[in-house]
Computed example of a mutant assay.
Amino acid sequence: MSRRFLPSLLPLLLVASTAAAQTAPTSITFDGYWNETPSVELIPAGGQVVVNYDTSRLPQCRGTTSTGNPTWTITGHVQVNRGPVVSFWVAGHAPDGNPSQRTLHLPAGLSGALVMWFDISSQGCQGWDSNLGSNYHFPIGAPTLSFNSNWDEMVAGTLRAGQQFIVNYDVARLPECRATYNGPAWVIVAQYRFDNGPIQETVVTGSGTSVATPITAPVGARHLEMWFRNTDRSSCMRYDNNYGANYHFDVQ
């Protein structure tokens, strides 16, 4: 994966603005005991996120020069709603001798999941802090259900009756139905129901890629059941339904 180091801010996902500067920052702390603690349950859009990272989580690859300067670098990686991955300096040798700030600026109106992971690298050595490949998920503006390519289902935040949540679905989970006709001629839909009620569905892809899809839980709902269907114009059909058991989530 290529890295893009930026001088201070992370554009695209994380754009500085006057409104953001006036908002009290949210902190996310990755401590040495393997806890990941955001200061709020839901990260507000249009605000700042300060990343506090304990470097003892990645103790390997700690080479130094003859003068004792580090030859290793810890890098943070951040992604919102399966968009572009942007990387920033955390500790060790700084690119171009100009460390990036570890303050992320979120544009207003954003909703979905902020996903983060870290790596340490030195010549011939690399280590990862990535939640065993699942990465760390934090909800922006609304709770988020992430269905990842490694077959993890991650809940960030709390699903609440009467409120909206976001579904992020990785299309790599259903890779077979991929007919084209002047572009992608396939679609993946989420099918779901609350409390064994009527089945509903909503599209979770757009132009062949995943999109952050909002769903509102009905007032009084206590349980969500969800599965996914992939179809294309050649009549191919595949399901992601937990081997027929579907995926189940509590709603508060």
Rank of each mutant, 00 (worst) to 15 (best):
G133C: 02
W117S: 03
F118R: 04
L132T: 13
V155M: 14
Q123D: 12
D152G: 14
G109K: 10
D129T: 06
G141T: 12
G127R: 15
L114W: 02
L104M: 12
S130F: 00
S121A: 14
A108M: 12
H105I: 06
S121R: 14
M116V: 03
T144L: 02
G112I: 07
N135C: 00
G112K: 13
R102G: 02
N131E: 08
G141D: 04
G141H: 08
G124L: 13
A142R: 13
I140S: 00
Y136P: 02
Q126K: 14
T144Q: 04
G124Q: 10
W117K: 04
R102I: 04
S121I: 15
W117R: 08
D152W: 05
T144Y: 01
S122P: 03
T144F: 07
F138T: 05
A113S: 13
W117F: 08
V155L: 15
S146R: 14
S146M: 10
R102K: 13
F138E: 01
W128V: 11
N148W: 04
H137D: 02
S111V: 10
S111F: 11
D152Y: 10
F138G: 00
S134H: 12
F118Q: 03
V155D: 06
A142G: 05
A108H: 08
N131P: 01
E153M: 09
G112P: 02
L132W: 05
A108Q: 10
H137E: 01
N131H: 10
S146C: 13
I120N: 09
G112Q: 10
G112T: 07
Q123C: 08
Q126E: 14
